[in-house]
Simulated assay, not measured.
Amino acid sequence: MAAPGLHVLFCGINPGLMSAATGHHFARPGNRFWPVLHHSGFTPRRLRPDEEGELLDHGLGITNVVARATARADELADEEYREGGRLLEEKVRELGPQWLAVVGVTAYRAAFADRTARVGPQERTIGGSRVWVLPNPSGLNAHWRPPELAQEFAALREAASLPDLSDG
């Protein structure tokens, strides 16, 4: 779900089995992406995965590093990440979002061969697009609690000069 000229193109790691079955990003009920997206101010309400098309109304899009669905991201091979990074670079150059937001520092490191990357803005740019790495909102990433996830997402929203659309 992407279009040219977005403010932010969010990029997940790869579809989970639930996402593959439903055809929607971050579809697993325990995934915290949709609530965090709202609480960080990117959306005026919590969207459901089947409402992901509404992201475009806010200048946001969503894609993945790797297209192959797995139960867990650790089932992906290094070659899949590297090829996914190459294809993602092509997509970003074509679409030209203001920011590419990779959701998962481990995925970013593997896809772009940047072993020292940390959560936050990166020095790397792709075409004219800046890059930001966000924590993975999966429920498996338990050391990032929802308030901290929302804070990291909000920092990106602020860097992109987008208004706070949250209700609180």
Rank of each mutant, 00 (worst) to 15 (best):
P49H: 05
E89I: 13
R48E: 01
M18Q: 14
P35K: 05
P35Y: 02
Q151V: 10
E52H: 04
R130P: 07
E152H: 14
E148I: 08
V102P: 07
R28P: 05
I13C: 13
L165D: 07
E90F: 15
G128I: 12
S40V: 01
D164R: 05
L55F: 05
T116M: 15
T43K: 02
F26V: 01
A117F: 12
E51G: 03
G139A: 15
A73W: 10
Y108I: 06
V8M: 06
E79C: 12
G104F: 08
S129A: 12
A154W: 04
E158Y: 12
R46W: 08
E80V: 10
R124M: 15
R86E: 11
N64I: 00
S129V: 08
A73H: 09
H39W: 13
R130H: 09
D50F: 05
H38N: 13
A155Q: 15
L100A: 11
P135K: 03
G12S: 03
E75R: 07
P146K: 09
S161Q: 14
R124D: 12
N14Y: 08
E83H: 12
A3G: 06
W99Y: 06
C11N: 01
G23V: 00
M1I: 00
R130S: 12
I126E: 06
G23D: 00
R48C: 02
R130T: 10
P49K: 07
